[in-house]
């Protein structure tokens, strides 16, 4: 992406296009990657509720894979996930391993 020069900017850094955070991919911040363990998932959607970004994809009321473009690896989903019978449905793994 070509960055704008100072003559092309909006005064005061006002963002005129609402809802453009989709363009800002926070996934590059991630040091730990959440892994979904499907067999332990009870579809409570706590992860979707707690995720501070839009990294949990929900389709027809069911959670699907992570969208890693927006997952900054904060680990909140893994902490909140109740899982099945004490077995978490999300685990965090260090990136690059």
């Amino acid at each position: 992406m070509k960055l704008k020069g100072w003559k092309e900017l909006t005064p005061g850094a006002v963002i005129l296009e609402a809802g453009n955070s989709a363009e800002f991919k926070t996934g590059s911040w991630r040091a730990y990657r959440p892994i979904w363990i499907k067999e332990n998932c009870i579809q409570c959607l706590f992860c979707w509720l707690y995720c501070p970004d839009m990294a949990i994809i929900v389709k027809d009321g069911k959670r699907e894979e992570f969208n890693y473009d927006y997952c900054k690896g904060c680990g909140i989903c893994a902490l909140e996930c109740p899982g099945k019978k004490g077995n978490k449905a999300i685990k965090m793994e260090e990136e690059g391993n």
């Binding site: 850094a13 963002i15 609402a18």
Partner: peptide, 9 residues
């Protein structure tokens, strides 16, 4: 015309 102000730059 909704907009955001005071963003992180």
């Amino acid at each position: 015309h909704p907009k955001s102000i005071g963003p992180l730059i």
